[in-house]
Design a protein around this nucleic acid. Structure first.
Lengths: 173, 173
DNA sequence: TAGTTGTTTCAGTCAAAACTGAAATAACAG
DNA sequence: CTGTTATTTCAGTTTTGACTGAAACAACTA
């Protein structure tokens, strides 16, 4: 897999962004490479292109799989596994957010509920603060679930509403 | 500053969540501590409570300041700086998102625009993929700007709409 | 079955980031 | 000014997580 200066730039940036959001750099680079590639790639090819160890790619692919944005595709005349990533960016985005919610937001909600319960009575100040936080995270979480329950096209439309959002909201009083 | 088991649990969890989202653990813990504290704290107290070096706290406070969620408050009869964090969770959330957008999303938009321009003509496949990604990030970004332009109370109302979102959207066709 | 190719695991190494403590600097008080 | 207290900086250390390469394992082929 030959990288042009442009695709290389993209992959490096994606890797960099990944690490700023808690995603391993190689995982993010692998994802970027698969996204930009015009055909499914074998792990060997990924390792060679990104100049990382084959075993590192193996781990990264496992990780991408756990995020639900990787597909194995068979290639005629090649016994090796080949990989593709979700090409629909809206689906990809949604999948990643769902997984982050599951891994991080939901446990946080649970913890906050525990803390609120524990602080009740014994520590009025902490109780209030924790409860405020909990309310917000709960509201965001509920909102997210409902928005994401929209069918794909509706979600896209919703996001593309842009400037109309404030007006729309006015009518929902 | 004495920690109860509950506040300690909260602080530890917040630190853990921070590091999963690319925020230094001590920074996140400091933030959690200030959020839960019932009065402004001096850097010394923070260091002592979290059991980290005074200098580490100094750096963390600088970091929180750069995120715009820290306030210095003077305390009568104490020459040391004392610190508070934004207690309004909606404001806090908004401030952090704004900053992340500025630091990460905006540069990504710029990079994607460059890449799309470069790939145009020379690499039709990459051009299409990059353009899809750009369109989505642009849509999300624009949407975010408009939603965040809502006054505080409207934003809260918007998020708390929850299940009504799909219906609302139906009426916006 | 033995041999070949492809994949995963994992102990050890390496790199990046976090953290410490001491020294430098700054801010103030007498 | 001089001494005292508070804060920041930074060189060196520690920790964490990423990465490598070799060995184990799995899947297929002849």
């Amino acid at each position: 897999m030959q990288l042009t200066p442009t695709t290389q730039k993209f992959i490096l940036h994606w890797g960099e962004m990944g690490s700023r959001w808690g995603i391993n750099r190689t995982v993010a680079q692998t994802h970027a490479l698969l996204y930009i590639a015009d055909r499914p790639l074998a792990a060997d090819e990924i390792a060679e292109t990104l100049k990382v160890a084959r075993s590192n790619v193996s781990v990264s692919l496992k990780e991408l799989e756990s995020w639900g944005i990787l597909k194995k595709v068979p290639v005629l005349g090649d016994r090796r596994d080949h990989f593709e990533t979700t090409v629909d960016v809206w689906t990809m985005f949604r999948t990643i957010l769902d997984e982050r919610k599951r891994r991080e937001i939901d446990p946080t909600l649970e913890l906050l509920r525990e803390c609120v319960a524990e602080a009740k009575g014994t520590d009025p100040h902490a109780h209030r603060r924790l409860n405020n936080l909990l309310s917000m995270v709960e509201a965001m979480s509920t909102w997210y679930v409902h928005v994401m329950s929209l069918p794909h096209a509706a979600l896209e439309k919703f996001v593309k509403l842009g400037r109309k959002v404030p007006k729309l909201l006015g009518s929902a009083a």
